[in-house]
Nucleic acid binder design. Structure first.
Lengths: 248, 248
DNA sequence: CCCGAGGTTTGATTTGTATCAATGCCAGAG
DNA sequence: CTCTGGCATTGATACAAATCAAACCTCGGG
């Protein structure tokens, strides 16, 4: 049975209710984190005309592997899982996209992965072809996209080491520490609670483990007083333990 | 004992002996495969002035993880392994670079991986800062680099699926098929013999396995009449078997 | 307040791959 | 021709994680 059968096609919403039209980008709280930080005020207002705010509800798909890439997206809130599936149902999650992350860096007309909303998600949407034309005329934007791509590539290489060479315990320690860093970056300040919006199955598919091994390993860490489990997340009790067992 | 202790620093050689200075790029046999295909005749001669042909002998390092990235490279012949190492000696090979592949796409001043010559290697070398200045002024070159980067990213995602979700048999089938495709691309025509210049340990470190499992799996395939083992490589006997077991 | 569904935890058992330990097989040096 | 060192192969055994199988929350709906 396909575990993804509950993923429904996305439903596009009307434009953002919280900003007057014409102010979205200037007041965007993820601009500093995103592609758009490379864009000056004048370009920003032009870019804004190309963009549309979209909302995806929990468990809906932003797009699927086999879809044509009509749009590209800048995630502004929520968490998205990036999934590659095998014909027999095995899944690998190659990453989680959060506020500031860009989907569609390659500007290819075909996606090579699915993007599914783990939580409710807001994203700034651009028509792919239009965005490509724009970036073709703005070398500094292209360069910023290239920097994003090579950064992603470096993260992908880290993840290959994790998948190929770490133990279950090391995988979880690395994952939790990385998640802490990403929330800190998004929130703009140190956080205590590490929110885990994704389910155990998603964590398993990200780390190349089974759900049972993820559950056992986290609960073992709890029993060993390395962390406490709280609603919707965990909290480090022994941060040094995670630093010592994680990859970089 | 560190398995890499035999990797010695590279020895730089004088410029290419086979071409008169001023003709390297025009007659370059990997141009069509490389970054340089995006460069027109005039730019090519300019680029050529920036470049120097280098030779690295088998087992030497082009650069190491911890080195500062002074140069970037365009591989013109031979095979390079890209390695990430853990402090305790565990290794993950994130890829093999062959003719046409570019090392230094990120243009960062620090490498995040080592590059080691598996065979004798020739590469076209550029000063990183100079190359960056050049690409900053040539949007189509930057775009080509970006395309290379996002293609790499897609390959990296494939490899994550392999590492996280495939069995040893599937990993080997995928690896051999992928290698066949890459040799075909480099040679410019279909090939029968799939050369395996890298040792079993390198294959293991690429696939997230041990050397024993690689050896057992290949020899099992041989016993099952899926392939024949020949000096320096293998030959498919049952190509359909590999197609059926490989990832895409 | 109870029920049911979806997700999580826990336990028992199996298994694929790692580990440990020889042995085999060249190719190059002497 | 024989020795030697560096892989590669093969076999026996161990073990980490997968698989199979319940039981257990918890939260929203009736």
């Amino acid at each position: 049975m396909d575990r993804n059968s509950d993923i429904v096609p996305f439903h596009e919403t009307a434009s953002c209710a919280h900003h007057a039209k014409g102010d979205e980008c200037r007041f965007c709280n993820v601009r500093r984190l995103s592609i758009c930080a490379a864009v000056d005020a004048e370009e920003l207002s032009f870019l804004e005309d190309l963009s549309g705010d979209t909302v995806f509800e929990e468990k809906s798909a932003l797009f699927r592997e086999e879809d044509e890439a009509i749009s590209v997206y800048n995630v502004t809130s929520g968490v998205v899982r990036l999934v590659r599936s095998l014909p027999d149902g095995r899944r690998q999650i190659t990453g989680f996209a959060m506020a500031g992350d860009f989907l569609g860096l390659s500007l290819n007309t075909s996606w090579s992965f699915s993007a599914e909303a783990v939580t409710d998600v807001r994203a700034c949407r651009f028509k792919r072809s239009t965005f490509e034309d724009f970036s073709d005329r703005k070398p500094h934007l292209m360069k910023r996209m290239h920097e994003f791509a090579t950064h992603e590539l470096s993260l992908a290489q880290d993840h290959m080491v994790l998948l190929g060479r770490l133990t279950a315990e090391e995988k979880l320690a690395t994952f939790l520490l990385e998640l802490k860093r990403r929330w800190t970056r998004v929130e703009g300040h140190e956080i205590g609670l590490i929110k885990l919006p994704m389910g155990r199955q998603d964590i398993a598919d990200y780390l190349g483990l089974t759900i049972e091994t993820v559950s056992r390993t986290i609960n073992q860490m709890h029993r060993d007083r390395r962390l406490v489990i709280v609603p919707d997340g965990i909290r480090f009790v022994d941060p040094a333990y995670f630093e010592a067992h994680a990859l970089r």
